[in-house]
Amino acid sequence: MVSVGLRVVLADDAVLLREGLVALLARFGHEAVAVLGDADGLAAATREHAPDVVVTDVRMPPTYTDEGLHAAIALRRDHPRLPVLVLSQYVATAYADTILAATESGGIGYLLKDRVLEVRDFVDAVERVAAGGCVIDPEVVRHLLARRRSPLGRLTPREREVLGLMAEGLSNAAITRRLTVSEKVVGKHINAIFTKLDLPPSNTDDHRRVRAVLAYLRGRGVES
């Protein structure tokens, strides 16, 4: 994972939060190369600075509804490999569904603003997304699980738990620590998930992880 030197384009209408994020990123060796108070300038700033990752709020001027979300989707459409982390004040699973539906690859994240207070978690999320990972806020994952029947009925409860932790962006080692089992056991669960989701081997397991998480959170194959 990238640990230092990320170039970030940041958009948030709240001045104090915006400046706090700039300072926080700098503390961990990253640079906010463009800082915006609305979503209108995101496309131009991205073209100008070619950032490693874009971090944008969902709700911004002029209507304070979903300008940032639509700007993020447009960025991914025009720059499919551009990592984008979307911040939201509230748990809105529809926003998570929308941003996930706009991508077939990694480098995407949806995080609640409360997570910024957990400094290391926020910075880890930025770095994971910049490195091509898929990071969904744990609280959003819980709401998604509660809202719909699992689209992955073939998975065991433990496999669903492992996949939920993968959706939070946890590595195999982190899942091992969370579940207090061996890394070998976690690896077996993940291989079973890939098999049951009909995800054939690819060049890297990272790609299959992203596809598994996207399939899970987007509800592909939900049984009626």
Rank of each mutant, 00 (worst) to 15 (best):
T180H: 15
L112Q: 09
G132M: 12
L163D: 01
D97L: 08
E139N: 14
R211E: 03
S105C: 12
L144G: 09
A92S: 11
K188Q: 15
S202Y: 04
T195H: 10
A146C: 06
L152T: 14
L145R: 13
E127F: 03
V84K: 06
P83M: 11
E118C: 05
C134D: 10
A212G: 05
P157M: 04
Y95I: 13
A173C: 07
R76C: 04
L155V: 11
Y95Q: 03
D97F: 03
V140F: 00
P151D: 06
A96C: 12
L214C: 01
I99Y: 09
L117E: 14
L163Y: 00
S182W: 15
R209M: 01
T98P: 09
G169F: 08
A173Y: 11
L85H: 04
V135L: 05
V186W: 07
L145K: 12
D114E: 12
S105A: 14
S202T: 15
V213S: 05
E127W: 00
K113L: 04
L197A: 05
R149H: 12
L163K: 03
P151E: 01
N203W: 12
A101R: 15
E161L: 13
N172E: 14
D97W: 00
G164R: 00
A215G: 13
L145W: 08
G106A: 05
S202K: 11
S182E: 02
F194T: 02
V140Y: 02
